[in-house]
């Protein structure tokens, strides 16, 4: 699905079904990352670039692909156990 690269979210989540017969406690909300390259398709030429030093730090030459990972489970740990 081709959508404007700026309207997608980088992390998505879902709640798996928890069966009453399931002996384990429910997992609750599970998260999965959806990086920018999924939404860009074929990379257009002349995209804006990071400076070389910045590119090495960020791990990519083009800001459009930059995808910082912070652990959704950790951040949402508080809300998880309502």
């Amino acid at each position: 699905m081709k959508s404007n690269p700026k309207t997608f979210t980088k992390v998505k989540s879902y709640v798996p079904y928890h069966s009453p017969c399931d002996p384990c406690p429910p997992i609750g909300r599970k998260y999965y990352s959806t990086p920018p390259n999924l939404y860009l398709g074929f990379q257009p030429p002349n995209l804006p670039q990071f400076s070389p030093i910045e590119a090495l730090k960020r791990g990519t030459l083009w800001p459009v692909f930059y995808d910082f990972y912070e652990n959704p489970y950790k951040k949402r740990a508080g809300k998880e156990h309502e």
Partner: peptide, 18 residues
């Protein structure tokens, strides 16, 4: 050197498809 080589790697990957 690492900075220059990283840019080279990124551009190599890009140029493979462009």
């Amino acid at each position: 050197i690492q900075v220059a080589d990283f840019v080279l790697i990124e551009l190599t990957l890009y140029l493979d498809t462009h």
